[in-house]
Simulated assay, not measured.
Amino acid sequence: MAADRFRTQLRDNQLPETVDGVLSALRFWEQQGGYCAYGKAGETSCFPTLEAGTPLDSRTLWPIAVYPVTGTVEVVFQPLKRRPPFDDEPMRRELMARFNEVEGIELAEAKLDLRPSFPLEVFAARSEELCAVLEWFVHAVALAEARRPLEVSPVAS
């Protein structure tokens, strides 16, 4: 199972404080209604993921990609650029600003459309602050969904 591989790689390659911080944040993500998707490469990456939209217009969003062996976290502005509400540049800027408020994270403005990264160790001491950023992400998506116009369905006569 990919989740087990991810946890094993995380425990084998990171300090216990980092492992605890990452796993705590991922549990928090799931409590917010998201789920974790996992990569299939030798290093099993983890993507905290949300589903948004309607059955006819469904899309998947994830704010970060966690790499347990290399010890990095990518903020995935590049794919978010094509997914509402983060297709709006001010929304991506707000996400970047929120990450940059966390001590140990310095995402360069020039990478707003790319996949800048920060060290996984930030989760060791700043897991709660990172959870606040993740919570904002979930709320931003939910608010945008609530503001979307309702689909008009044909009425049977």
Rank of each mutant, 00 (worst) to 15 (best):
M1R: 08
A2I: 07
A2D: 14
A3D: 14
R5T: 11
R5V: 09
F6D: 00
T8I: 15
N13T: 04
N13F: 09
E17S: 12
T18H: 05
G21L: 03
V22C: 00
L23E: 07
S24D: 15
A25M: 01
F28P: 02
W29E: 06
W29D: 05
Q31A: 13
A37D: 12
K40L: 11
K40D: 13
A41I: 03
E43T: 12
T44Q: 09
C46S: 03
C46T: 02
P48T: 14
T49Q: 15
T49Y: 13
E51G: 05
A52Q: 13
A52Y: 00
T54P: 00
P55K: 15
R59I: 02
P68K: 06
P68I: 10
V69F: 02
V69H: 00
E74C: 05
L80K: 03
R82T: 12
P85Y: 07
F86N: 10
F86G: 06
D87V: 03
D87I: 06
D88G: 04
E89Y: 11
E89C: 08
P90D: 15
M91T: 06
L95Q: 07
L95V: 06
M96C: 10
A97G: 07
V102S: 06
E103Q: 14
G104W: 10
L107Y: 02
E109Q: 07
A110I: 04
A110K: 10
K111D: 13
L112R: 08
P116L: 09
S117D: 11
V122A: 04
S127C: 08
L130W: 01
W136A: 14
A140Q: 07
A142P: 04
A142S: 13
L143M: 06
L143G: 11
A144G: 10
E145M: 02
A146V: 06
L150P: 01
V152K: 09
P154M: 13
P154K: 12
V155Q: 09
V155M: 09
S157M: 15
S157G: 08
